[in-house]
Design a protein around this nucleic acid. Structure first.
Lengths: 109, 109
DNA sequence: TAAATATATCGCAATATTACGATAATAAAT
DNA sequence: ATTTATTATCGTAATATTGCGATATATTTA
């Protein structure tokens, strides 16, 4: 018990859920917003900007990387993070599909 | 430790994160899709459709209700669930804002 | 009133998430 | 080579999530 039963859902449902989960934390939303605002940024910028420990920021970056929505380029001792445009657009598309495919909503009963 | 530090984020960031979290489970995505497909449905339909225990479905419905995206009308011993159109549109708008306000994405470094 | 039906809630066990200090790994600068 | 700077990973504590059986609640039917 206590484990999500992924086997009873479709690949699409599981994938969308994983994507949403990766985005479903205020720190990760803030990280994405900051990366986009600055076009790119290094881990330490986020530590100062958000006021979370370096280990915590690094962990959140890892989760965002896990769905591919950001990528990091090594530049000396820094790692420069930016959004992966292709994945970003795909996520946008997946969410739109979910909301647009289901348009004819009527009120209840 | 181990608790999300909501106080260091904006209300908008926290709200979007909560919304995404409520949607970030395959069962809840499946529930929403089924409700929309059937226009409305009762809890027991979902139990049979998804193959999760009645208590589990009820809990997932509660989480969806917590962000207001679904509402339930009591009809005898049944509760008829459907999407709250206003909230649905608002969620759609919030997500669009997040993705559309951040359009000029460039590749990294 | 009693039985049947549908849903919600409680309590619990298994697992996952969140945050952080400590430490490792890597590259630049001295 | 050693120090400095940046990031990743490990280990751990606190908390949250997931799923389900058992039970409570509420309405309908017999």
């Amino acid at each position: 018990m206590g484990v999500t039963k992924t086997e009873i859902f479709t690949a699409q449902q599981n994938h969308l859920a994983l994507t949403l989960k990766a985005l479903a934390h205020p720190a990760r939303i803030a990280i994405l917003q900051h990366i986009i605002k600055q076009n790119a940024c290094i881990c330490n910028d986020l530590v100062e900007e958000l006021g979370l420990a370096q280990a915590t920021i690094s962990q959140h970056l890892k989760e965002l990387k896990s769905i591919g929505i950001i990528k990091g380029n090594i530049e000396g001792t820094n790692v420069c993070y930016c959004v992966d445009e292709t994945v970003w657009q795909q996520v946008k598309k997946d969410l739109n599909s979910f909301f647009i495919d289901n348009v004819n909503i009527e009120e209840c009963c």
